[in-house]
Structure formats: structure tokens, C-alpha cells
Simulated scan of single mutants.
Amino acid sequence: MPPRAVDAGLVALAVLDAWLNLFGELTPLVLVCAVIGCAGLFLRRRFPLTVFLLTLPMSLFMEVVVAPFTALYTLAVATRNRPLLAGCAMLNAAAGTLSWPLSDTFSTDRTWTLILFVYTLATAFAPVLCGQLVQAGHDVERQLAEVEEAREHERALYSQAVLARERAQLAREMHDVVSHQVSLIAVQAGALQVAAKEPDAREAARTIRSLSVNTLDELRHMVTLLRASGGKETELTPQPTLADLQQLIANSGIEAILTGELPADISTTAQRTVYRTIQEALTNVRKHAPGARAAVLLWHDAHHFGVIVTNTAPTRPAVALPSSRQGLIGLRERAELLHGTFTAEPTPEGGYRAELRAPAGTD
């Protein structure tokens, strides 16, 4: 229920309580005290102590319960000052015991007055204890939330530690196995380049050696990044751009041509995606279509940009090579990050066609 509705209901109950317990003549002073004490409940959440003090005069003129007890309860929920709460309970008991005019109070049996004060004081502690109980419940809820937050943080730290160990293990495997084998390929390619007598064989060996060296360089950066394991920031490998396409095609090891162009203002993410698309397509041509020629076409219009990589049919049988079959999946995921599409399909001439298409202006 909305707080305003709750406050309105309490004010209505306080007015009814005051009306039912009105004794004697309704003088302007009594009316003002009753109106102030009841209406003040609207402000009990913001000024609990002030509102409680406003209910004391009406308790002096009539035996009301709703307004002073509500104010005491609100004050007990809002404050942790136990002496203040005890003093307010005593003030409420005193206001409820005294009668107006004050001389009438002391003209009666003082023993009965004391008994009435003790009874009223005990009754006044009921809303105070209820308010303190609610406050304790809020404290428990807050502490449970803090404990749960601490546990979530602990679980996150544990997950990071596990991930760090896995990264370190992966880095060791890449350094000890992959890097070593690629190094051997580079060394053997260099030896073949020196020993080969035919120009085509020397060029092929040079291409293999160049690709192996570039692969080693990227592996070193990846190993460094994996060893960082979320600690200090590590310098990443410089990401490729459109300016690196000519070098990529020259080192691809196949006969390929690059035509067309893309806008110079496309984002670095888009440039990297185009580069990786061409790189993966040329790699697939080299692996699965030996002797084929490739054509790389960059294009753009007012609303889209993209790249098309096509290759002719292979001229000799392909050698079976291990493949994770994740390359095309990765290209589709890169295209989706640009809100674009990636398609790859065979051509009627026996070749293959891969196309990246993305809307202009994407990041």
C-alpha cells in the first residue's frame, strides 16, 4: 500500500479516536490540539520527534491512543537513541496521566495517580518495542544483503582465479608446443629458401617463412596477454586496418588481386572485421583450393559497405589438413557485431564466394 494512503488511514483513525474519547466541552484550545496532533501524522516519516511532541497536548485533554502511539512507533523505527525513546515514553505516560487543569490531578489519590502513570508507561513502551523490533528486522535484512553481496564478490574472485589458472596453462601450452612447432617451420622454410634452386620454390619457401614469423609474433603477444590474467594492463597486438590489406594479400601465398575501396571514415572495428574476413577467406583458398586464383572486391554505397572474396576452382587436389571449422562461425559473429551478415557458398564454376555486408555508420 502506498505510504500516503497508510498515513491518511492513520489520520482518520486518530480523528475517530479523538472524537470518541472527548470528555467535557469542546473548547477551541482542545480542538486546535486535536487537529495539530492528528494532522501531524502526515509528517511522521520526515519529522518523527516533532510529530510526537505535537501529540502530547491532545493526550493531556483526552485519552487518545492512535496518534501518540503511532508517533512513538515511527520514532522508534527511525532512531537508535534508547534514552530518547525512554524519555518520550515517559512524556507520553505523564501526558496521559495528568488531567487539565493540572490542579485536579493532584487533588485525587496520589497512589492511584502513580499506579495510573506506571500502567500508562508500560503501555507506552509497547509501540517503542514494536518499532525497535522492526528496526532490528531492517538491520538483519541489510546485513543479509551485505553478506550475499560479499558472497557474490567471493564467487567472482574465485571464478577469476580459476580463469587465471586456465589462462596460464593455455599460455604455457601455446609457448611450449605451438610456438616451438611454428619456430621449426620457420627454420625449415629458411633453410629451404637458401637451398632451393628454382625461383618458384624459393618464393614459396620465403612466403612460408614470412607467414611463420608473423604467426610467431602474434603468438608471443597472445601468450603475454594470457599471462596477464586480468592483472596489469598488457599492450595488445596492434590491430590490422585497411592499410594492411595489400601486405596481407602479398603474403597470402596465392595469386590474388584487390579492387575497389571502402570509406576512410569507417570504424576501426569495421576495418578489423573486413581484414579478418579477407584473411580467413584467403586462408581457406590456400587450404582447400590449391592453385586457385582469388579476387577481393571492396565496395560501398550510401547505406552499406562490404567485401566479396571469390576464388576459382582448384587446379590440383587439396591436402587434408586439420581444421576446427570455427573460422566461418567467427566471421558470422564478427558480422553480427556490425549488425551485418556474412555468407559463404560455392560458385557454379567450382570455386567459392564469401561476402561480408554491413550497414554504413556501424561501430
Rank of each mutant, 00 (worst) to 15 (best):
G330Q: 14
M58R: 09
L226S: 06
Q169E: 10
G253H: 08
V32R: 10
P48R: 00
A243G: 06
H303F: 01
N214D: 14
A89G: 15
L211G: 15
H304A: 09
Y73I: 05
L16D: 04
E355F: 06
N311R: 12
L226T: 01
T310H: 06
A195G: 05
P322C: 00
E166C: 06
C130V: 09
P28L: 00
Q160A: 14
C88D: 00
L84M: 14
L60D: 13
G340L: 07
V147E: 10
L133H: 10
N251C: 04
Y119W: 09
L31Q: 15
L84V: 13
L43H: 05
R325C: 07
L258H: 04
C130L: 11
R165N: 09
A281Q: 08
A5N: 07
E173C: 05
E149G: 10
L144Y: 02
A360Y: 01
T111W: 13
E336D: 10
A318P: 03
T241A: 12
T108W: 00
A86T: 07
Q132V: 03
L29H: 10
W19D: 04
A145N: 11
L56T: 12
T234P: 08
E333T: 11
L337P: 03
I266D: 04
S183Y: 04
L98S: 06
A14W: 00
E233W: 06
A358R: 07
V162W: 02
G137K: 08
T123F: 03
T27S: 06
R165Q: 15
Q181G: 00
W19H: 11
H153Q: 07
S229V: 03
S107I: 00
E345K: 14
L248G: 10
L192R: 12
T215Y: 01
W112C: 03
M174D: 04
V182W: 09
D265M: 01
F305D: 13
A171F: 04
G361E: 05
R45T: 08
V134W: 02
Q169V: 12
G190F: 00
E154G: 12
D363G: 02
I36H: 09
F42T: 02
D363R: 03
T347Q: 05
P3S: 00
E255P: 15
L53Y: 05
S229A: 15
S323E: 12
A168T: 10
R220D: 15
T120P: 04
T312E: 15
K232R: 13
V223G: 14
A201Y: 07
V319I: 05
T237P: 11
E146P: 02
K197L: 06
L192T: 06
T113P: 05
P290C: 05
